[in-house]
Amino acid sequence: MKQNRKWYDYLWIAELTYLILGLFNILFAWLGMLFFCIPLLIAIFGGSKAYCSRYCGRGQLLELLGRKLKLSRNAAPPRFLRHPIFRCGFLAFFMVMFSLMLLSTYRVFTGAPLSEAVTLRWMFRLPWQWADVSFAAPWIAQFAFGFFGVMLTSTILGLVTMVLFRPRSWCVYCPMGTMTQGICRIRNRKEMKDDGRACT
């Protein structure tokens, strides 16, 4: 590697710790909001995708598993994966799932019973009763269950595409990546027009 390692090269440890903590107590899922908010804030206020290239712990973890541990076939992914329609479609699907999760949190907030399960790949409900959530408000726990399901599902998708294609294939269709790239496009549209080379 060309340069000395920096502190942010070890953020894969944060990602791994997050996934493990979620197994012990679902309320740690709330920490995942950092992985959501930081890239958006960098894109909105900084106009860049520095999060993807530097600070994404998941990307680093996939890189480590795929390249260092050689768990990836390292094959070029199919073309559709990088097609804007697929990327935007996956982002839209992800947003719908996220909205449904917020809706169920709202329903619990207004008195519906708490569902102590993590839904994997938006289909399979895993019982998750071992975590004590009695000390938190039910809606806080409900959001945590829903959010951890989203994080775990996207991690599994990332691992599957890591094995099948290149280590960081998840980055191609990552909803956060698509969203931050879109924000950067909107934010920097003037420079793009002036420059004329970067428009796709």
Binding site: K49, C52, G59, R168, C171, G177, Q181, C184, T200
Partner: peptide, 10 residues
């Protein structure tokens, strides 16, 4: 043109 700007190349 379909670069996703992930920064792996950088």
């Amino acid at each position: 043109k379909e670069c996703v700007a992930c920064g792996c190349c950088v």
